[in-house]
Amino acid sequence: MANSIHDEISQAVTDNSVVLFMKGSRHQPQCGFSSRVAAVLTYLEIEYKDINVLADPEMREGIKVFSDWPTIPQLYVKGEFVGGCDIVSEMVLSGELDQLFSENGIRFNSEAANRIRDHNS
């Protein structure tokens, strides 16, 4: 993998507390899984950077090597890979995502998080 993509990715996850590598953008998601994670982050009023991997084939493959994870979307918090759609969804429902954000000093709307859990209980 060209060094530049690896550097580009590590720069993005270092410079931004929350980064979502996704297919499409938060306003025009192009995949159901990417769309769901972006919607959750937006609903929780998280400040995050969305990166459209479809815009750059090298990025689409490079991110999978970077995280040793074969699918998109991929969520990063404070430079750490958190998971894809399944894991983020489970973490929202279990409250682990709230905890992860709080531990990392990331502001989010906890009532919105509770509403998601109420709707899904």
Partner: peptide
């Protein structure tokens, strides 16, 4: 194992 390790 955590979820990421399990799914990996």
């Amino acid at each position: 194992k955590n979820r990421v390790q399990q799914q990996r």
